[in-house]
Design a protein around this nucleic acid. Structure first.
Length: 401
DNA sequence: TCTGGGGTCCTAGGACCC
DNA sequence: TCTGGGGTCCTAGGACCC
């Protein structure tokens, strides 16, 4: 039986801001992105008490809490904190999976006894984080990731909880299914129609019935209801499957020229990231969101895998021009998938080689002097870097895909 | 003064081939 | 007349997560 530990930072971005600006401490405040069409990224616990939630727009948040203080997020602070945190975790075990910028799984099966047991490890990690960064974290532990996650959810903020195997059944039995990691709104509703409300109900439901209604997911649901889940902590960074960028435009656009400009900026963002990690992609996908919020995507296969900004742009543009747009466009996105390693690839065409050298030079300059020091004409316009989301992975894409 | 952005995984249906 | 059946590839969309 393994012992899996999850560290989850409490209101991470908000806590970091409150730490670095004492005037924000103890106050209802929230971190937002730049631009006027932004949402709450993280609300402090003081703000949550008023009903302010992640994903709310600013108007809604202020309605909940008129004296809410809003702070535009600062990526560097969060990413550097995250990097140092990894070092803290590695004191306790080499098996560390950085799950997101504010969450990490640790496998402490073999090492817990060296520190006096699971709860002692959890307490020490919390104390290390408090001492080094002055912020709180919640630690949850269990025999697998599902239970570790649940333990932390049930005890936050500033929590420490270990759900041992013999407690699992008692905890799950009365617990509403939507509390489980992986069961969202839709699945909760569908289970409800089957008369399944608690994890206890779910664990007792016949697997044949669940498989019937949910397919593969049905078997996983049954297992989850019984407290079973993955217990493998991936210390190696996973291969990335797609690289994309999307942006809600500061104003809705209608002309092909405006759309093209935005698509070029997105193509350059995607291309430069792919080049940085030496990958190419063979499937391109364009996402469009209308003014009405109706959202859809169109994708196509490329003849050759690419990470060339101009090739990405041309293909994105030909997807767009094939669509008869029915409304002003609010958001555009470009993403590449079916990724390949671009390691040793030798270009046959001199033109291609020249372009690759140009990209390498431009990317190098941008790495050294900041993101858009050197860029292409259509990118010169303010392309304000929006705030990073808590889902951002500090390691980015692996070098060796 | 509405409603961000980065992902993963799964399903369903059509095209196409043998 | 009364229409196989599998497998693979591709696209679109939905659910879920942080």
């Amino acid at each position: 039986m393994k012992i899996i530990l999850l560290v989850d930072m409490d209101a991470f971005f908000a806590s970091v801001e409150q730490r670095s600006n004492p005037a924000l401490r103890g106050k209802p405040m929230a971190v937002i992105g730049s631009g006027h069409r932004t949402v709450i990224t993280t609300a402090s616990y003081e703000a949550r008490a008023y009903g302010v939630r992640t994903g709310m727009n600013v108007y809604e948040a202020r309605k909940q809490c008129p004296h809410l203080i809003l702070v535009v997020g600062n990526n560097d602070k969060y990413t550097s904190t995250c990097s140092v945190l990894e070092g803290v975790y590695r004191v306790y075990t080499p098996i560390v999976e950085i799950y997101s910028i504010d969450e990490a799984f640790l496998d402490i099966t073999e090492s817990a006894h060296l520190f006096g047991g699971p709860l002692a490890v959890g307490a020490r990690i919390k104390e290390d984080i408090r001492r080094m960064f002055g912020i709180n974290a919640t630690v949850g532990m269990g025999p697998n990731k599902l239970i570790a996650k649940l333990a932390s959810d049930l005890d936050k903020p500033d929590g420490l909880r270990w759900i041992s195997p013999d407690e699992i059944q008692d905890v799950l039995d009365p617990l509403p299914v939507k509390e489980l990691w992986g069961i969202g709104k839709r699945t909760t509703e569908r289970l409800e129609t089957l008369g399944i409300r608690t994890c206890g109900d779910l664990g007792r439901a016949p697997v044949s019935m669940l498989r019937n209604k949910f397919g593969i997911l049905g078997e996983r649901l049954k297992a989850m209801g019984m407290g079973l889940g993955p217990s493998e902590v991936h210390a190696e960074e996973e291969e990335v499957k797609s690289v994309g960028h999307s942006r809600t435009l500061s104003e809705d656009v209608t002309t092909l020229q405006e759309i093209g400009q935005a698509l070029f900026q997105l193509s350059e963002k995607v291309g430069s990231r792919m080049r940085k990690y030496a990958v190419t992609g063979k499937t391109i996908s364009v996402v469009i969101r209308y003014k009405s919020f109706e959202t859809f995507s169109k994708q196509s296969r490329l003849g050759m895998p690419t990470n060339d900004t101009h090739v990405i742009y041309r293909n994105a543009m030909s997807i767009i021009t094939a669509i008869r747009l029915r409304e002003p466009v609010r958001l555009l996105g470009v993403s590449l998938s079916d990724l390949h390693d671009d390691g040793e690839q030798i270009s046959i065409f001199e033109e291609h080689r020249r372009r690759q050298r140009l990209f390498t030079a431009m990317d190098g300059i941008n790495d050294r002097y900041g993101n858009a020091t050197l860029t292409w004409g259509p990118c010169v316009r303010k392309s304000s870097d929006s705030v990073i989301s808590p889902a951002w992975r500090p390691g980015g894409i692996r070098k060796s895909l």
